[in-house]
Design a protein around this nucleic acid. Structure first.
Length: 105
DNA sequence: AAAGTGACGCATT
DNA sequence: TAATGCGCCACTT
């Protein structure tokens, strides 16, 4: 299950449509786990460019220091290009751009 | 097998 | 409003 779990997480992340964001916790719940850190670990060190890790933000919408790219600025630029609005320099407008994750299947 | 670790979440101080 | 502390679960060594 372990590797599948990671694959599942990565898949969920890749399913986040452009212009929307999701929190680690959302993804976690979506795949049926209760710990956001698992999600963080799953995407950490991932070298698949198809995974839009920049659409993952913290629970409050703040960007994190992106360990893959450098820092949150890169993510901010990407997100802004996709249409996501920021309410703060490093905080996305979760209220309006958070993806609706229905309960996991 | 056990201990250490983390790109978090959340309540409380 | 910002900062601190604890919990949580699977992964890595």
């Amino acid at each position: 299950m372990t590797r599948y779990l990671r694959q599942r997480i990565l898949r969920c992340v890749s399913e986040i449509p452009p212009g929307q964001v999701a929190t680690f916790g959302d993804i976690a719940k979506k795949v049926g786990i209760s710990d956001a850190r698992i999600v963080a670990q799953a995407i950490s060190g991932n070298k698949d460019p198809k995974i839009p890790c920049h659409r993952l933000v913290k629970f409050n919408g703040s960007l994190n220091t992106n360990y893959s790219k450098g820092d949150w600025r890169d993510d901010k630029i990407l997100l802004e290009q996709e249409g996501v609005k920021f309410i703060d320099d490093k905080t996305v407008d979760l209220k309006n751009f958070r993806k609706n994750f229905n309960s996991f299947p």
